[in-house]
């Protein structure tokens, strides 16, 4: 089985100069956990997900604490978001995008999804241009549907 058998041919993506605020709105409207980041030629240059954005607004010292439950809420998240909302998303994206190609074996996509902890991966052509995405559920669904062929 190949990636092409399971992927979704969809070009939903954000441009690298899109603001953080716009990206959050897009993720929310599309109910997505992340989106590929592309340049003007639609080449995938990164990947942004909710986790990257939450990390950007949670104070960095929180990671040093065993628990943050005793710290009073002083609207720190909102204050931090105000600071970054107009900044380009390329400042917060994962700059080494993990991608697969249409002709890659499906098991490669399944491995990457688990190895890197992503919910989906961009699918690109030889020029790194976006063709679509492959989600965890797409892998599972197509394997389930194809099991009778074995």
């Amino acid at each position: 089985m190949k990636v092409r058998d399971a992927m979704v041919y969809d070009l939903s993506a954000v441009f690298e100069d899109e603001t953080v605020e716009n990206v959050i709105r897009m993720l929310s409207k599309q109910e997505l956990s992340g989106l590929p980041v592309v340049d003007r030629e639609m080449r995938v240059v990164g990947f942004v997900n909710e986790e990257d954005l939450i990390k950007a607004i949670v104070p960095s010292y929180f990671s040093l604490l065993r628990s943050a439950s005793f710290i009073p809420d002083t609207n720190q998240l909102m204050k931090n978001l105000v600071k970054i909302k107009d900044k380009p998303i390329c400042n917060f994206m994962n700059k080494v995008p993990v991608v697969v190609k249409e002709d890659d074996a499906l098991i490669v996509a399944a491995d990457y999804l688990i190895r890197y902890g992503f919910r989906f991966l961009p699918v690109v052509n030889d020029n790194m241009q976006l063709l679509g995405i492959i989600r965890r559920i797409d892998v599972l669904k197509v394997v389930l549907e194809g099991k009778e062929e074995i």
């Binding site: 041919y9 969809d10 070009l11 939903s12 897009m26 409207k29 599309q30 109910e31 063709l131 679509g132």
Partner: peptide, 27 residues
């Protein structure tokens, strides 16, 4: 946009893998 928009995209993708979708999602 909205619930009907998601239905439309799902149905369109189900129709054929020869159709690539590229829609702007709106309120």
């Amino acid at each position: 946009g909205g619930h009907m928009g998601r239905i439309l995209l799902e149905e369109l993708r189900r129709t054929s893998h020869l159709i690539t979708t590229n829609f702007v999602h709106v309120d």
